[in-house]
Design a protein around this nucleic acid. Structure first.
Length: 256
DNA sequence: ATGTCACGCTGGGCGTGA
């Protein structure tokens, strides 16, 4: 079983790269974030031609999440949005059942600046996510994957000093991330690579990808039954290269 | 290094968000 998560930064702009990924990696579940597409414009037809079905929570110009799975074992929607999230108009959370596993794709708010209303809304979203997970994780198996916009530890950023005063690394955000894990989830990348220092996001600007100036902010979190089946968890950096890349690379988790 | 993308609105740059 292969589970992939990818912040595509516009599904319309990234569709060729998504089709490339489906053909090359053949995921059993693909969680997308920042689809930035209207519900009516979601490219179901193109994905179906590639052998995939999708459930999407689309918000138009911003955000947007989806779960894709092969037509032979398609995703069955199990809910969208999050009780208690700060803006119900945002499209940042979708749940689907895929081959007996609850699969959640989430796009946590960026937060913009610490001590701003947007930062408070990020923490509020994370608190709502924790509440939801506390309810459904015990019923596992479950995977939640997406762009959490949090680097869990200093080693998950290229230079902690470069992020002083910035979001993604604050004690509050890291505590909120730990609280998600404490509902009974394990970080797939960290489980496979206890000493790994690889990243999933690099700024488009200033050649940051070329210099590997990135952060690990995309995560696959698994219930223990699924974590015990992990055989690999890799960052597919090739998708950050080439024509029209997203600023995020896909994260690929393989289960026996 | 305020350095790049992608969007909507529009009709070609600008405002917004990341």
């Amino acid at each position: 079983m292969r589970i992939v998560t990818w912040n595509v930064n516009s599904l319309k702009a990234r569709l060729p790269r998504v089709l490339e990924l489906l053909a090359d990696l053949a995921p059993d579940a693909l969680c997308l974030q920042e689809t930035k597409v209207e519900t009516a414009a979601f490219p179901h037809d193109e994905l179906r031609e590639a052998g995939y079905a999708a459930v999407d929570h689309s918000g138009g110009r911003w955000a947007g999440v989806a779960v894709l799975a092969p037509l032979a074992a398609p995703p069955v929607e199990a809910g969208r949005g999050l009780p208690g999230e700060p803006d119900a108009e945002d499209a940042r959370w979708i749940e689907a059942d895929v081959a007996g596993i609850r699969v959640i794709s989430t796009y946590v708010p960026n937060g913009r600046e610490p001590a701003s209303p947007w930062f408070d809304q990020k923490l509020q979203f994370l608190a709502a996510a924790r509440e939801r997970l506390a309810t459904i994780v015990p019923a596992g198996p479950l995977v939640i994957a997406g762009d959490f916009n949090i680097a869990p530890e200093d080693r998950d950023v290229y230079d902690p000093a470069a992020f002083t005063g910035s979001t993604h690394v604050t004690p509050e955000e890291r505590a909120a991330h730990r609280a998600l894990l404490e509902t009974g989830l394990r970080d797939a990348y960290r489980t496979v690579s206890p000493d790994g220092e690889r990243y999933t996001w690099w700024d488009y600007r200033a050649g940051h990808f070329h210099k590997n100036l990135g952060m690990r902010i995309d995560h696959v979190l698994l219930t223990p039954d699924l974590s015990a089946r992990l055989t690999a968890c890799d960052i597919a950096r090739d998708y950050r290269k080439g024509a029209k890349p997203s600023d995020h690379a896909p994260l690929v988790a393989d289960l026996s």
